[in-house]
Amino acid sequence: MALSDADVQKQIKHMMAFIEQEANEKAEEIDAKAEEEFNIEKGRLVQTQRLKIMEYYEKKEKQIEQQKKIQMSNLMNQARLKVLKARDDMIMDMLNEARQRLANIARDPARYSVLMDGLVLQGLYQLLEPKVAIRCRKQDVALVQVSVLRTARLAGLHVGLQQLHYFSGGIEIYNADGKIKVSNTLESRLDLMAQQMMPEIRVALFGRNQNRKFLD
């Protein structure tokens, strides 16, 4: 039985409606899937950026902490250096005061005479030259001559005396050409004693360093 034009038009409309419905459903499905993929990608990007931001701030925090440690270390070193300088200045002041008092040693003739004997004898033994020159203060010339008579001339040494004024007492001894010197001035003896006793001086003034394992 042939379909009438009305029936054909009806079927065509029905098919078009079906196709349109299928297209709409397919479009909705595509939209839903695209929305889902978009949300997934957005979540992934957000998470990635969040991690990057967290890493950035963690890195910054570590840098700030490291800078704080460096600054604290620098401040502690500066403070330590200031303390060490203050201690060294105190020791230098003490040694300068001791140097200023060296002249008092020569004011006791009996003790100074014994000291000069020892300084002359020690200097001659250190130099071990047959001909020497001894330099001393003008006011010590007679005293040194006596010391030389007790030591050098008895050993057959030739000794010349020169007068100097730039030290507080004691002597300097030179070989014949003046290239070798033994300094036994009071200043040089004080410096030598200070160098040898510096650990004990530091302990006496500032106490023992608890962080130091060995004493030199």
Rank of each mutant, 00 (worst) to 15 (best):
I180W: 08
I53A: 08
K68L: 03
I201Q: 02
K181E: 10
I171H: 02
Q49Y: 05
K52T: 14
N209Y: 04
E172C: 12
K181P: 05
T48S: 06
I12Q: 06
F38I: 04
A110H: 09
Q145M: 13
M76D: 00
L127S: 00
H165T: 15
A34G: 05
N184W: 04
H158D: 13
A142P: 07
Q78E: 10
G160E: 14
I201S: 01
N104C: 00
L157H: 03
D7R: 14
R137F: 10
P109R: 05
Q210M: 05
R101H: 10
D7C: 07
F167M: 03
L186N: 05
Q67H: 03
R137P: 08
K213D: 08
A17Q: 12
A27Q: 14
P199C: 06
I173W: 10
L190A: 08
M1H: 07
V114A: 03
D216V: 12
V83E: 01
D5E: 13
S188G: 05
D140M: 02
D177E: 04
D191A: 15
T185H: 01
K33F: 09
E36I: 00
R44V: 10
Q66L: 06
R107I: 04
I173C: 03
M116F: 08
A32F: 06
Q49V: 03
M54G: 02
Q122K: 15
Q100S: 09
A17Y: 10
I30E: 11
Y56C: 02
L149S: 09
K42A: 03
Q63F: 06
E25D: 14
K42S: 09
K213Q: 15
L81R: 14
M193V: 11
P130A: 02
D191C: 04
M1V: 07
A2G: 09
L186D: 02
D5C: 02
Q67P: 01
G207E: 07
I180P: 04
Q9I: 11
K59I: 03
A106D: 00
M16L: 08
T185D: 05
V83Y: 00
R44S: 08
D89Y: 12
P130R: 05
S113W: 03
L149M: 12
R101T: 14
K10L: 09
M72E: 04
Q196R: 15
R208Y: 07
R135S: 15
Q78S: 05
M54H: 03
V132D: 04
E22S: 10
D191M: 11
M15E: 08
A142G: 13
L81N: 11
I171V: 11
S73L: 01
D88R: 15
S188H: 10
Q47T: 15
L161I: 13
S113L: 01
K213I: 10
E58H: 09
N96L: 05
Y174Q: 08
Q49I: 08
E172S: 03
K179P: 00
M76K: 00
M198K: 14
K52H: 13
L215C: 04
K68E: 04
I40F: 07
M92N: 14
V114K: 01
N24Q: 09
K62R: 14
M16P: 00
N211L: 05
Q163C: 12
Q49E: 02
G118L: 06
K131T: 15
Q78R: 10
L190C: 09
E37A: 02
K10F: 07
